[in-house]
């Protein structure tokens, strides 16, 4: 980091936040504060939906995941376009027609207040914790690599996002997300182009030969984490639940210039999300090729952690692992060069034999990386051994020119701020509309008081997320654990909404107790089965719908719906 990088980083990060704060400083209407400017067009809505979904994890960890395991992760997004079509056709018209502020307000109109409260509390619990991770995840990586203080990094990003989100509400969130996405696109394309200029000819073919380009796997093995089927069906239910029932997304498209703008914003995402994710995972697969030709490729990408152990009591063991890795890496590079020669000669038999040797050499390097991680765990059982999160940032800091380094760090912070702002905005809205108003029904008509309450709740959740990030000692795989928790809760939440939309004879008590029973079933299955976590979305949803219908048959006329869909 040199002064130019700091100017670019702080200029973009604080400039966009200040612009959003200044432009929306007079937001005093509840509708504008909670739903955004009523003239918002589909392009802004589409970018806002995209910015809320993609946090720093998307841009920092996904390339690392592709480096390590290939691009199969992209299959997780296969259900997304289909889910967005269903949200456009079914969910959005009903939300718009009823003029609700939150998805859970609809549950209150359709069922009863206890079902509304159940939906709102499930959202607040899950998203409140998740918002802590949204600022913790980039802070831990960037502070480790750049030597910044972790606490200060968390507090700085937390305060910046609280200032503009509390000031302008949804209007400020949409406005800043548009510019943050411009920074993100600009930075990622710049990094990709620079990477392409540093690659040898045949890089894509080499990534494929090393098994990194398995984009689609039609296997029906349920134990496999990423397959076409788990992505299509599990991903469909996860995306339906996320876009249709999670207030942090519902709030992005529920306002704006009308139903048409919301629908086109969602269709914009349906068309661009998979190509965008493909671009990010391809960046990771090509980073893998790039690092094959770097003599200094580390055995463990979190260099700060590795250095601590090199200088520790077991330093000799770690130094030995460094040497062993360097030798194997050099041997692998020779095999790669032999494969490139065979490829250039056009001799397919020689090329096939060279490929086998190259893959064997890669397996040897992978084995020594495994040894290194085991050594770290032996030295410190709480050591964080997942170093794939550090692959892309290592490339950024070692290969990009000054100024561009600042731009890429701005990408990481912009993505953290944009997804965090969407979450805070939704948490504040749900707390105000679904909780506070229930306790103070007479205050519902006092607009100024409602806006004040929404601002206080938004600030509270911002401080809660900061406190959570500062105090929680995050486990190594907590981020993935939170994705699993989301899958455990999302399915049941979606089930409640599907019953609301499509089973008009089911009443509030039936769906309320069915949801609790379905949730208990999913949690029990999670602890007793070993299946890909995306499937829990489908199981939870199916169980909730089936139990609701069965309970309604038992309860009969004692449990009538408050209102009907038709």
């Amino acid at each position: 980091m040199n002064p130019l990088d700091w100017v670019v980083l702080l200029g973009t990060m604080l400039g966009i936040a200040a612009y959003g704060t200044w432009r929306t400083r007079h937001t005093d209407h509840l509708d504008t504060y909670l739903k955004g400017d009523s003239a918002t067009k589909w392009g802004t809505i589409g970018l806002s939906v995209m910015a809320t979904q993609a946090s720093t994890i998307t841009y920092l960890s996904l390339p690392g995941q592709a480096y390590e395991n290939g691009i199969a992760f992209i299959q997780n997004y296969f259900g997304l376009p289909l889910a967005l079509i269903i949200v456009c056709a079914v969910f959005l018209p009903i939300y718009r027609k009823l003029g609700v502020y939150t998805a859970y307000e609809y549950l209150g109109k359709r069922f009863d207040s206890k079902t509304r409260l159940l939906g709102a509390c499930l959202f607040l619990l899950q998203r409140g914790v998740q918002s802590g991770v949204t600022i913790y995840a980039p802070a831990i990586i960037l502070s480790s690599v750049l030597g910044w203080q972790l606490d200060l990094t968390i507090i700085f990003t937390g305060v910046v996002v609280i200032v503009y989100t509390v000031t302008g509400g949804s209007a400020a969130v949409s406005l800043t997300q548009k510019w943050q996405m411009a920074v993100i696109f600009g930075g990622m394309v710049t990094a990709f182009v620079i990477l392409l200029t540093k690659l040898p000819p045949g890089a894509t073919e080499m990534a494929g030969a090393m098994g990194k380009l398995q984009a689609v796997d039609f296997s029906i093995d349920p134990d496999k984490r990423y397959t076409f089927w788990s992505g299509l069906f599990g991903g469909l239910f996860l995306s339906l639940s996320y876009f249709g029932t999670d207030q942090s997304q519902v709030q992005r498209y529920i306002g704006g210039g009308g139903l048409r703008e919301g629908r086109l914003g969602l269709m914009f995402n349906a068309m661009l999300k998979i190509p965008m994710q493909f671009f990010i995972v391809m960046l990771g697969a090509l980073l893998f090729v790039f690092f094959q030709f770097q003599p200094e490729t580390p055995v463990f990408f979190n260099r700060a952690e590795w250095q601590r152990h090199l200088e520790g009591a077991d330093g000799a063991k770690f130094s030995e692992l460094d040497k062993k890795h360097a030798e194997l890496h050099r041997a692998k590079r020779e095999k790669i060069e032999a494969w490139m020669l065979a490829r250039a000669s056009g001799d397919s038999r020689a090329k096939s034999a060279a490929r086998e040797e190259m893959v064997t050499a890669q397996a040897a390097v992978d084995a020594v990386r495994g040894e290194a991680k085991n050594a770290l765990l032996q030295a410190n059982p709480r050591a964080k051994v997942k170093d794939s999160d550090y692959v892309f940032i290592t490339f950024i800091l070692s290969q990009l020119p000054h100024g561009v380094i600042g731009l890429l760090l701005a990408v990481m912070f912009a993505s953290a701020l944009s997804s965090k702002a969407g979450e805070l905005n939704a948490l504040g809205t749900t707390s105000t509309i679904d909780l506070w108003r229930s306790l103070r029904p007479l205050a519902a008509h006092d607009e100024a008081r409602n806006v004040r309450a929404a601002k206080w709740f938004t600030a509270f959740w911002g401080l809660f997320a900061m406190g959570f990030a500062l105090s929680a000692s995050f486990a190594e795989n907590l981020i993935e654990a939170l994705n699993i928790i989301a899958s455990i809760f999302y399915g049941v939440m979606l089930g409640i909404f599907l019953v609301a939309f499509f089973f008009k004879r089911v009443g509030g008590s039936a769906v309320f107790f069915a949801a609790i029973a379905a949730q208990a079933l999913v949690i029990a299955m999670y602890f007793s089965l070993n299946i890909g976590y995306l499937w829990y979305n489908l199981i939870g949803c199916g169980a909730c719908v089936a139990f609701s219908l069965a309970l309604q048959a038992v309860l009969g006329s004692r449990d009538q719906p408050v209102e009907r869909n038709s």
């Binding site: 992209i74 296969f78 376009p81 289909l82 967005l84 079509i85 959005l92 018209p93 718009r96 894509t204 073919e205 990534a207 494929g208 030969a209 098994g211 380009l213 398995q214 984009a215 689609v216 796997d217 039609f218 076409f228 139903l259 048409r260 629908r263 086109l264 269709m267 349906a270 068309m271 998979i274 190509p275 493909f278």
Partner: peptide, 13 residues
């Protein structure tokens, strides 16, 4: 109330 690419590219392996 005015769209899915499925990569099977894989067949690089």
């Amino acid at each position: 109330g005015p769209v899915f690419g499925v990569l099977a590219f894989t067949r690089f392996s």
